[in-house]
Structures are given as C-alpha cells and as structure tokens.
Computed example of a mutant assay.
Amino acid sequence: MKMKFLYLIGIMLIGGLLVSCDKDSDEEKTKNFKELLVGHWVESHSQGYYHDFSNPEYNEEWDEDISEGETFWFKEDGTFEETFEGVSKGNWILNGNQLSLTVTWADDPENIGGSNSPVILELSESKLVLESHDKNDDYEEYNKSTFIKVTP
C-alpha cells in the first residue's frame, strides 16, 4: 500500500513539473517581442534580389555588409522613425512575427503614405532580422536585412 502511495505522489510531482514548465503563451511571446523591438536599430547586412520581368537589364542580386544603411527607431507608443534616403515616420504593429509598418507624413498625419509588412526571422536584445518579399506581374523583390541595436 505504501509503494502505491509513493508511486501516486511521484506521478503527481512529475505532472506538476510538466505543467509548470509550459512554454510562454502567444500573447506573452508577442509582449516579449514588443519589448525587444523597442529601440534604435541600424542595418548591418542586406541580401536579396530584384527581378524585373519586362526589363531584365535591371535585375540584380546582392549579399553585402553595410556601413551606412537603413535605421529604425521603434518607440513604445507604437510609432517609428526610419532613415533611408530621407526620414519617414509612421506606426508599427506587431502580430506574432509579422511587423506591420504604416508611413504617415508629418505635415498631414491623415495621409497614409504606404505600408510594409516584413516578417521577423530573428529578434534578440542585440539583433533583428527582417524578411520581405513582393511579387506582382511586373517584378519580384526579396530582401533580408540584419540590424544591430544601437540603443534600447
């Protein structure tokens, strides 16, 4: 009888450990991603391709380290500033590993300038890897950009 009781206690302890070691929920993961994403990011590497179906002379492929690339400043309030051949501002929303960026213009915030939804392939306290792919009847473009965090 004592052995059955000890087995029962052992099974209950193991069951309790398995439940307590459950992985983070999707909501907790998104919250952690948001906390990690906030800060100033500078592009350090880019790889991808652009294929123009009508004008193949414009086709190109690249895989290069970058010293002065695109920068993002993701703010806690859901806004961002992007620097790449000028400055853009807008709003960001994170849904799982999908990052939705919507550009707004400072002089006319109601005028939405465009949107982009890259996928986050990797995100840590110091590294962000974004992937985007766009294809239509005229062209196909793929870009994978690696960013390093400059400031939190």
Rank of each mutant, 00 (worst) to 15 (best):
D108E: 13
L94P: 02
N111W: 12
F80M: 08
E125F: 01
V87K: 14
S25K: 06
P56F: 07
K127Y: 08
F74S: 00
D52S: 15
Y49F: 15
W105F: 12
V87M: 14
S67V: 13
Y142E: 03
E27L: 10
F53K: 15
L13R: 00
K4L: 13
G86N: 00
S100W: 07
P56V: 12
V150A: 07
Q98T: 13
N32T: 09
S25P: 03
K31G: 05
K144L: 04
N116I: 05
T146Q: 01
P109M: 02
N95G: 11
V103Q: 01
K149Q: 09
T83V: 15
V129Y: 05
K29R: 12
S44F: 03
E85S: 09
I66S: 00
I9C: 02
V87Q: 13
H133D: 01
F5D: 11
D108W: 03
E57K: 14
G78P: 04
T151A: 12
G10S: 10
E28W: 00
S46H: 08
E64T: 15
V87T: 15
E57H: 09
E64R: 14
I93Q: 10
F84T: 06
Y139A: 12
E140C: 11
N143A: 11
V150W: 08
N143M: 12
N111K: 09
E61N: 10
D22A: 13
F33E: 06
N111H: 02
D52N: 15
E27Y: 04
G10L: 10
V19M: 06
Y7G: 03
K89E: 15
N95I: 13
I120T: 11
D63K: 12
I66R: 09
Y50H: 12
T30F: 03
D22R: 12
E140V: 12
T151F: 02
N116S: 15
E85Y: 11
G96P: 00
P109G: 04
D24P: 07
L13E: 07
G15V: 01
N136G: 14
E70A: 06
S132M: 08
E43T: 05
V103F: 08
E141D: 14
C21Q: 07
E68F: 06
V150K: 15
